[in-house]
């Protein structure tokens, strides 16, 4: 099928270029490891839990969702560099599927995010985190959907604004409230009612709750399917929109 073939062409190229640049791999692993080692020890007292394992159960899913959101939102910068180099225009004069131009790139972002997530999970195991494998895989699915959505949004916005100068403040402005209102770093259990009310409108807050439930081993919780469903719907919408931006005239 043409879409599959085209997507894998773009994906392979993007993967190849990513792996050629070891700096990214180093940064991608180093940062979350720092969070895990330097930030996590503060958690046990702050969260008022009894064991490290319990603290990690709350913190690690939040950290993973955070990485998925931020990793995705800032992918647009790479695309602007490609626009400037003329690579996008060169692709657009070929009959390649426009959806593939987006999916190939977004899938690379998903794969590198999952690779990061695996490293962090393995490390957290060392710190006594325990999570049931099927639950973990579902949590990865959630992360994949988040990063698919955020990277597609970032690519779409990059194609619209076409300059780093506009993309950076835009993405920061989006990311900040999303982060604060999702209970990502600390759960919103202790938040006042009005804050929780706002957070209910933040889709990422549902994603975080779902991921936490999975790490807790609470597969049956409504948070799980609700989080997955919301993220899936948003991911599809973001991909459809961004692919249309790839098809539209860009300069």
């Amino acid at each position: 099928m043409k879409l599959l073939r085209d997507t894998s062409l773009i994906f392979n190229r993007q993967m190849q270029l990513l792996l050629r640049n070891p700096v990214w791999i180093f940064v991608g692993v180093f940062q979350p490891v720092m969070y895990l080692l330097l930030f996590a020890p503060l958690l046990k007292p702050a969260l008022q839990v009894n064991s490290n394992a319990e603290a990690y159960e709350i913190f690690v899913p939040g950290l993973l969702v955070l990485l998925a959101i931020f990793g995705g939102l800032f992918q647009g910068f790479g695309l602007i560099a490609e626009l400037r180099a003329g690579v996008i225009e060169r692709s657009r004069v070929t009959p390649v599927s426009r959806l593939a131009l987006l999916l190939g790139r977004s899938l690379r972002d998903v794969v590198s995010l999952i690779a990061q997530a695996v490293i962090i999970t393995l490390l957290a195991l060392v710190f006594d985190l325990r999570v049931f494998l099927p639950n973990l895989l579902l949590a990865y699915l959630m992360l994949a959907l988040i990063s698919l959505m955020t990277s597609a949004v970032s690519y779409g916005v990059a194609l619209v604004v076409k300059s780093e100068d506009a993309l950076a403040p835009l993405m920061n402005t989006v990311a900040q409230p999303v982060l604060l209102l999702s209970g990502i770093l600390l759960p919103l259990t202790f938040a006042p009612g009005w804050l929780q009310g706002i957070a209910d409108w933040n889709p990422f807050s549902w994603a975080v709750n779902g991921t936490r439930a999975l790490f807790r081993g609470d597969l049956g919780s409504a948070d799980v399917w609700q989080g997955l469903l919301i993220m899936a719907v948003l991911a599809v919408a973001a991909v459809a929109w961004a692919a249309r931006e790839f098809a539209r005239s860009v300069r």
Binding site: R13, L17, R20, E82, A85, G86, V87
Partner: peptide, 8 residues
Amino acid sequence: GGSTWDDS
């Protein structure tokens, strides 16, 4: 303006 990618 050209169309090649630096790292390819």
